[in-house]
């Protein structure tokens, strides 16, 4: 009975996290629109999108690789569900960040499986923007140097004693912020979804497959923002966590609204520069904090 009720709780948490993640994406769109003096869609637009696609006609293009076309949707939901439970259970940060990197493969699979040239170029751009993930591991290394652990629960305990890592390791927080920014829609690094590629890697996924992708995006947004707060602010009660996530999405929306989308070349160049700076920072931290 207990295991059944805890199982139900876990599913309820997962559903709520997905809906809240979609709501955050809606807030993100709304703020960008208001900054650009447009009315913008209502903040629940992404939730409506997901529901709408759930009941639309579903098809698999004639040119697609059917198993991969469908399988990649399930993998996308599966990996972010796993990331969510690792977050909730205070598990390994390394596994969550591994999942974050694997999302690149999901984008790649989405793009290539349909046979569409727009999807293909979205997938190829996803591969070339892989440079954005390297600062993430430098961030992890810096956190590990300070906290001597990569378990989220241990990292939060460390911050209860020593204060937020946002202050102690501010450049690492900036690097992770940039990593999250690179995954946000309409941002300076959103080259995988650029308008010249229609919708990029997700161009051909419609109906229930697109609804699955929307679910994955909602969950991904929730997990990434919650991980950022857990790693750099420390343990927060649920209301404060939700407030923190809204604040973070507002900052991200401002960054997206005032920055034009870069060309693929510029996007990768800036990401590589950030990587180089983070490597220098990590080397300094290694020499000073843990010689």
């Amino acid at each position: 009975m207990t295991s059944r009720s805890s199982g139900t709780d876990m599913i309820a948490e997962l559903v709520l996290a997905t809906f809240f993640g979609l709501l955050l994406l809606g807030i993100h769109r709304k703020i960008i629109a208001r900054i650009q003096r447009r009315p913008g869609p209502p903040i629940w637009q992404e939730i409506l999108h997901m529901l709408k696609f759930s009941f639309k006609t579903t098809w698999i293009p004639k040119t697609a690789s059917p198993v991969l076309f469908v399988g990649v949707v399930l993998i996308a939901i599966g990996i972010w569900t796993a990331a969510f439970y690792i977050l909730v259970s205070g598990g390994s940060l390394l596994v969550i960040l591994g999942i974050y990197m694997l999302h690149k493969i999901v984008e790649h699979g989405f793009g290539l499986s349909s046979g569409s040239p727009y999807g293909k170029y979205g997938g190829v751009r996803s591969v070339i923007s892989a440079a954005s993930e390297i600062p993430l591991f430098v961030t992890v290394a810096v956190i590990a140097v300070y906290t001597h652990s990569l378990d989220l629960s241990a990292i939060m305990q460390y911050q209860q004693v020593h204060g937020p890592l946002l202050i102690i390791a501010f450049p690492a927080a900036c690097a992770m912020f940039l990593v999250i920014l690179s995954k946000m829609p309409f941002g300076p690094f959103s080259i995988v979804e650029a308008k010249e590629l229609v919708s990029g890697y997700k161009t051909e996924h419609f109906g229930i497959w697109r609804a699955g992708l929307e679910i994955c995006n909602g969950l991904k947004t929730y997990v990434l923002l919650a991980v950022f707060l857990a790693v750099f602010i420390g343990p927060l009660s649920l209301p404060w966590l939700l407030v923190g996530m809204i604040l973070l999405i507002v900052i991200l929306a401002f960054a997206c609204a005032v920055t034009p989308m870069m060309s693929p070349f510029d996007s990768v160049t800036i990401q590589m520069l950030v990587t180089a700076l983070m490597l220098v920072y990590a080397a300094i931290i290694l020499m000073v904090v843990h010689p």
Binding site: S65, V67, L68, L102, K104, I105, H108, G109, L112, S113, G115, K120, G123, V124, V127, I128, A130, A131, E133, I134, Q271, M272, T275
Partner: peptide, 25 residues
């Protein structure tokens, strides 16, 4: 991996998504 992946990204022009995806994975 970055920054030595430029040639690899070009390899993904090849058809055969299930196979090509193994290169990046």
């Amino acid at each position: 991996m970055a920054p030595f992946y430029a040639a690899k990204a070009e390899m993904f022009r090849a058809p055969g998504a299930p196979y090509v995806i193994m290169c990046s994975l």
